[in-house]
Design a protein around this nucleic acid. Structure first.
Lengths: 121, 121
DNA sequence: CAGTATCCCTCGGGATACTG
DNA sequence: CAGTATCCCGAGGGATACTG
């Protein structure tokens, strides 16, 4: 299980999950497809540029499908693929962990920062 | 569940998980405590600086415990805390997902890159 | 052995402006 | 509406040298 290829693949996915917007976008698409502008409005804080880049990355990895309706003005819908949907489970498990332990983590940080003051600005 | 605080906590954990070394360090400590130099040798590729920084971060979040034995030369052991151990489950689930779907992802990328050549160098 | 301290460079990502 | 193109800054992270 700890082969080289596996490690690379795992780190690859982990960095996807760790980036600032990917998981948020995926979780927004959980229930139904959304248009570019809907995603942009819903996510709040994301720049046009980063939304585009995030969606391209997710599309490239086969997690999100992009559907263009060539009207004018154009309409583009984004939806989770089957693969994208399977990612939801482990990600939500991690999110649940984060939510469930955020108190412990916050307390650990306070303790650490009290012991070692001035290091964390 | 989608309160502001939760989102912050989740993103916080996700960025920990997404950083280059944290998960690797945690998974190395899975079975038993390890010394600084053992971690350094085992992980392969990590710089002394990044190992230190990663361990400090994990310690600050209460995921790893640092034990100094004041001999000369000094000996420092790192071990997972109970909290750190609970993180293992969701992280391993994600790793399993990554391993299980890496073929699909690779194929999706090939397809995407063939359609849109020259964009990814 | 187990770190700190510096230097330096790449990349993530925000702001803004322009286009089919 | 749904993007691309530029510019720019700060964080992440590697290499190297020094220390208790």
């Amino acid at each position: 299980m700890h082969e080289q290829e596996t490690c690379v693949a795992v780190r690859d996915v982990l960095s996807r999950v760790g980036d600032k917007w990917s998981v948020l976008v995926v979780s927004m698409l959980r229930d139904r497809p959304l248009r570019f502008s809907e995603l942009r409005r819903t996510i709040e804080g994301i720049s046009q540029r980063m939304l585009t880049l995030t969606l391209r990355g997710l599309e490239r990895d086969g997690l999100v499908a992009r559907t263009v309706t060539p009207t004018v003005p154009p309409r583009v819908d984004y939806a989770l693929t089957d693969l994208g949907r399977t990612l939801l489970d482990p990600v939500l498990a991690l999110a649940a962990w984060a939510d469930g332990h955020r108190g412990e983590i916050a307390r650990a940080r306070e303790r650490f920062d009290r012991k070692d003051p001035g290091k964390q600005d």
